[in-house]
Design a protein around this nucleic acid. Structure first.
Lengths: 207, 207
DNA sequence: ATCGGGACTGAACAATTGTGCAGTATTTCA
DNA sequence: TGAAATACTGCACAATTGTTCAGTCCCGAT
């Protein structure tokens, strides 16, 4: 009974899914309870019935987002075949699999980061913890150049990832398609790796 | 008469300056005309008297921001002494000079970028044009490594700059002070230059 | 002195938005 | 089948917000 069926969900679940998409697209404040109710084909009152308030709905949607997000990233390794696969192909397959839900997840993440809530901060902090420990591990393994700033590097690496997320609406307008589109996304990832590893300068100019 | 005096400005100018600060701090939608009027010690009606609407005020504030911004960055080269100066000292002096107004300018820029208005897009686009042409010049001069992605590099460079701007509220909470604070700002700039030039990997690990 | 125009006020207004609630429909369980 | 619980409706309400406007204040020109 608690199990939401994707095909014919009840009012509560439809509210959460619709609100998730609307919040991701327009931001929490720009979406009215009437918008959500109409898009979910339920009445306004149902929101307060199930969630107490619009903020209550937000909490439920936040949880839904976390679940969606973890579903997506946990799914990194495909079922049967494993070590034999080419990493690039794995990424390709992953992108293929999440072509539908990933853009909304990213857009919601973006909104959460930009509204300066405590919750957004906790997302930022978690990501920071992850990147920073990765950098520290690299450092311990001697993989980091000695003159690299240990304080800023994690943030700069985050900016490269989060910038892709935050400024994607502008990428869409400049390049005509999302940076999360298959080919672009892959190119960006390679460009990111190259930049981190070797910088952008040619050998003779660098230094 | 049109000249606004900083010491005792009239209602119109006080409205613009106050709204500038408030929009930068909270964002356009989160500031009410009553907030602005109260903080400016004028009545609500005066906003519509001078600017026609809240959106009219926004346009005036946008212009004010552009002027402030250009004032600040045009001021890069100090008056008398020039070529003899150490670049680091120049930057130091600049930061010193704009310690008061720069944070608000940055915060307003940030808001403008994050509200997905056409105006915000034009700011993004202008910045992109600048960075892209810089990259193209570097490329023409043979300063760019051959395997660097020419499409993404300008965006990644922008993300490093804009990320500093957009995520500064979180930097404040993680590090306890703004990334635009003198010493941090300088370190960040050096870390940025190092990353672009050589990447982060040590020689033996890189490649 | 006074007349005119612009700066300025603040109460009133309409639109929007979140919430409360009384009532109805539907499901669940004995 | 019947009754209680739960899902759901939709109108009414209060609060907020941008805007309007009739009127006041103040300064400069005649």
């Amino acid at each position: 009974m608690v199990q939401g069926r994707r095909d014919n969900p009840d009012g509560r679940e439809r509210l959460v899914r619709t609100a998730f998409a609307l919040f991701a697209e327009k931001g929490f404040d720009s979406v009215t309870v009437r918008d959500i109710a109409a898009a979910s084909s339920v009445s306004v009152g149902l929101i307060n019935h199930h969630f107490g308030s619009k903020d209550g709905l937000r909490e439920a949607v936040d949880e839904f987002f976390i679940a969606q997000f973890e579903d997506a990233i946990t799914d990194a390794a495909p079922q049967g075949l494993s070590a034999t696969q080419d990493p690039a192909e794995l990424i390709d397959a992953w992108i293929e699999r999440h072509a539908e839900d990933w853009p909304t997840i990213v857009a919601y993440f973006r909104r959460a980061l930009l509204e300066e809530s405590d919750w957004g901060f906790s997302l930022f902090q978690r990501f920071y913890g992850f990147v920073q420990s990765t950098v520290m591990r690299m450092d311990a393994a001697g993989q980091l150049a000695p003159d690299v700033d240990r304080l800023w590097l994690p943030f700069l690496m985050m900016y490269l990832e989060l910038g892709t997320m935050v400024f994607d609406p502008y990428i869409k307008r400049v390049l005509g398609r999302s940076g999360y589109d298959r080919e672009l996304w892959q190119r960006r990832h390679r460009a990111y790796m190259t930049l981190i590893r070797r910088g952008a300068s040619s050998r003779r100019a660098g230094g």
